[in-house]
Structures are given as C-alpha cells and as structure tokens.
Design a protein around this nucleic acid. Sequence first.
DNA 1: TATTGTTATACTCTATAACTATA
DNA 2: TATAGTTATAGAGTATAACAATA
Lengths: 155, 155
Amino acid sequence: MQNKSKIVNFHPSKDHLNGFVGYHMRRASKLILSDLAETLSEFSLRMTTYSALTIICENPGLRQSQIALALSIERPNLVVILDELEQFELITRNKVPTDRRAFAFYPTEEGNKICTQSTKAIQSSEEKLLKNFTPEMKADFVHALKLIINKGEHL
Amino acid sequence: MQNKSKIVNFHPSKDHLNGFVGYHMRRASKLILSDLAETLSEFSLRMTTYSALTIICENPGLRQSQIALALSIERPNLVVILDELEQFELITRNKVPTDRRAFAFYPTEEGNKICTQSTKAIQSSEEKLLKNFTPEMKADFVHALKLIINKGEHL
DNA sequence: TATTGTTATACTCTATAACTATA
DNA sequence: TATAGTTATAGAGTATAACAATA
C-alpha cells in the first residue's frame, strides 16, 4: 500500500507514455481479459472458445474459415478451439454436401444454453469492472474499439 | 475480398458480442499492439522493453520492484527485460547504498536518445492507426483506458 | 519474518510453413 | 492452381514456486 502510493506519484501527467493509446491498451486489456477469463472458466470456456461458440450460436452453419476471419483467429489455431467445443458437445462439426473439404458448425442444445448463461455472466462481470462508466461512456468506448478494428482490417 | 463482405454481413447489430468491451478489446489491442511492435522493432525494442526504458528515462533511479508495479509486469519477467536493455547499453543497473538487495536503474545517453526517437516513431504510427479519431475522441479513449487500469488496481 | 532480485518452468495466445484432400 | 482444414512447431507474454541475499 505504501509502495502503491509511490508508484502513483511517479507516473503522472508529465510522462509522455500518458498520451499513448498502445501503452494503456496493454494494461487495460490485460485486466479486462483476465477478468473475462475468470468468469468464463466457470463454464470451462476461454475467450477464444467463447467467441467461437457465440458466433456459431448466432450464425449456425458457418464454416471454419469464415469463423477464423470473423474472429481474427488464424485457421490453425481455430482447429484446437473447435475441437474443444466439440469435445464438450457444445457444437457439432458437419460435412458440407456442396464442398467436401469444408465443415459447417452448429450449436447443440447444450451449446446454446451455455452460450446464453456465459453471456449473462460476462455482462454482470463487465458491469462490475466498468461501474465507473456511464452508459454513454461505455458506448463511446466500444465504438472507439470498433473503429480501430475496422480500420486495421481494411488496410 | 468477396469473403470479407460475407463476414461483415454476419456479425452486425443483432449479435450480442457487440455490447461487450472484452470481445472488442481482444481484437483492438491485438491490432494496436502488433502495430506498435512493428514500429518498435526498428529500435530493437519490444512493448515491454520500451515501457521499461521510458519509465526509467522519466524517473531515473527507480528500483526493479517499483518498475514492475508501475508497469503491471511480474518481477520475474522484468529481469529479462532489464537484462536486454542493459545489454543494449540503454540503461545501467546500479547498486543502492542504502539497500544492498536492490538495484537502481538509470538511462544511458544512448538510452535517452532511443527513448526520444522511438517515442516519436510511436506517435506517428499511432496517428496513422487512429486517423479516424478526433483529438477529443482520442483523449476520451485514453481516459477510459486509464479508468479501467486504476479501477482494477485498487480492488 | 518479510522483501529484493533471481532461476526455472509452464501455460496460453499467436504466427508460419508444410501437408492432405478436395475444388 | 487455389482453397479448406490440419499438423507441427516456434515465439511471445505471462504467471507461479522456490531460492539466495539482505532487511
């Protein structure tokens, strides 16, 4: 505690790290993502498996490459993620009649259930973490994040 | 390109991932941090070594545990980071007379130079990445990130 | 006893090259 | 020739336990 106050003292307005998005992004995302990971662990999910499950629940029939593209996950890494969800019987991997190379993914009943439950859990844990935010601030913040994401993808 | 438009079509307003900070945080920070990493690689720096160098340049005499606390880096991981900066002769590791366990860190002349140069490089690369942001939006965004960081640390 | 810095280690996330089977 | 999914692998970043030296 006495150490903490020292720290606060030496990274105030004067330092030029303060203006940088990337610098604060690293620390803020670490906090948010580890909070999220903790919440999701109750459902045996990770950030990546949760994202994949959700996008499949909301867009049944998606193929692997589409999921990878939508979530900014490299295809090789996605394989393990979908394996995991399939092992837990939250999704099914189905051959596509029109393209024998491809698989289409659908949520199971349990998958839909877990998706809904974990989403609620995330909502309440995020609300705790962002309780200093007004709804408008939160909306602006998410909007800013989306701007960054879309910007980067259209380079 | 034609695949991209499909993707955009299936993750629009309806999906509930949209409201989540964590979900977008993962993708946005990946983009920003990899952009940053690319810029810093010109100076043989990484995000962590850059942060450590900068905080040392701005607060000469800091000790290892203070740096770790300030940057949210675990002490064991910081060892390697400071080793690297010392090898490149950007900082010096000095014994503290009053506490023989501790080390105090100071930037070298070269360290200060690289710090200034890399900071300028980051500024211009961030400006490109955030060119859709007004100065006010950027300030609000950084403010939101800081709120998250301070919130999490005082739990 | 507690703390500073260290070593060793492990786990996760991410990225790339190369393969197979289909198209 | 290109694409979908896969395998193997390597590199970061991060986290924890245990230790030596010192407080």
